[in-house]
């Protein structure tokens, strides 16, 4: 990449939070019951925001800095072990 002055302002590079800390949009927080999770990875596969990591041991971890709380993960969970918990209650 030629390091031309205008390209600094014209081109973008991948970085989290390009629209801010979108976790603040959330009203309901998805909480995974890790004990009952069957580690199928569907919540990871369908998460629109890519805020769920499917880890080496196949458990999942949610990035609450950016999770918007849409609830798609809870809806697709085949064993219904993701609870949507009101933020103020957490």
């Amino acid at each position: 990449m030629a390091d031309l002055e205008f390209t600094k302002y014209l081109l973008s590079r991948p970085a989290p939070g390009s629209a801010g800390a979108t976790g603040t949009w959330r009203t309901y927080r998805p909480v995974v019951n890790q004990d009952k999770c069957i580690k199928c990875g569907l919540c990871w596969l369908y998460c629109p925001e890519d805020t769920i990591d499917w880890l080496e041991d196949k458990s999942v971890r949610i990035n609450y800095d950016y999770c918007k709380g849409c609830g798609v993960c809870a809806e697709v969970c085949p064993v219904k072990v993701i609870d949507m918990v009101k933020e103020t209650v957490v």
């Binding site: 990449m1 302002y9 014209l10 081109l11 973008s12 590079r13 991948p14």
Partner: peptide, 10 residues
Amino acid sequence: GEPITMGNMV
């Protein structure tokens, strides 16, 4: 190639 994007909002 390099994962650059041209033209998104500023």
